[in-house]
């Protein structure tokens, strides 16, 4: 049996967008200090393979979603910090080996990105915007959705947000203005 290369567009896309060498973050070109890696393009191609089924979740998810979004209990903010966006989502813990998705409310503020759990009232994941180096939309066909990889100084986090597109663009802008303030 011989291998084929004809009509393998999907496999070409998968390889070129999700695999292969990427560079050390500080070498990738940046605009206002934020690395750009063709995010619109990734989104455009993502819809080809998997329908982006935002909000389609099983009943357990819906219950957790309700309990998180009905609450007014939100993370304490620092002086001068304001909330830009709040959205239901998950963070994957230890995503390189085995791990699990932790649900919560994503808060994008003018300074931080954090996943807040109303009970017991703590941030499961928290990072200041200056530390985020790369945003990368990745496909998770097994879960029929797109997720976001955050590369930051000190690690990588895989996250899922229910309105990924809006969230991504807001985060992107927030990163740009956070960088502008620093530099």
């Amino acid at each position: 049996m011989n291998p084929e290369r004809e009509s393998c567009l999907v496999e070409v896309l998968d390889r070129l967008l999700n695999r292969g060498v990427i560079l050390n973050a500080d070498l990738i070109i940046t605009v206002a200090g934020v690395p750009l890696i063709g995010l619109n393009l990734r989104a455009a191609l993502a819809s080809m393979e998997t329908m982006l089924q935002y909000g389609v979740m099983d009943s357990w998810d819906r219950r957790s979603r309700d309990s998180f979004t009905s609450s007014e209990v939100s993370p304490p903010l620092q002086e001068g910090e304001h909330i830009i966006l709040k959205s239901f989502g998950y963070v994957w813990q230890n995503w390189a080996s085995t791990g699990n998705w932790i649900p919560g409310s994503w808060y994008l503020t003018s300074r931080r990105l954090l996943l807040w759990r109303k009970s017991p009232g703590e941030a499961v994941f928290e990072i200041s915007l200056e530390r985020i180096q790369i945003l990368k939309v990745v496909e998770a066909p097994e879960r029929e959705r797109s997720e976001l990889d955050l590369l930051y100084s000190g690690g990588v986090a895989r996250i899922y947000v229910s309105d990924l597109e809006e969230f991504r663009s807001e985060l992107y802008q927030a990163l740009a203005s956070a960088r502008a303030l620093v530099s």
Partner: peptide
């Protein structure tokens, strides 16, 4: 130029990826 290749047009995106390939 120091600008990533980015577009919302799927056909354009596919073409670039195939050119890279």
């Amino acid at each position: 130029e120091a600008q990533p290749y980015d577009t919302r047009d799927r056909r354009q995106a596919e073409e670039w990826v195939l050119e890279h390939s």
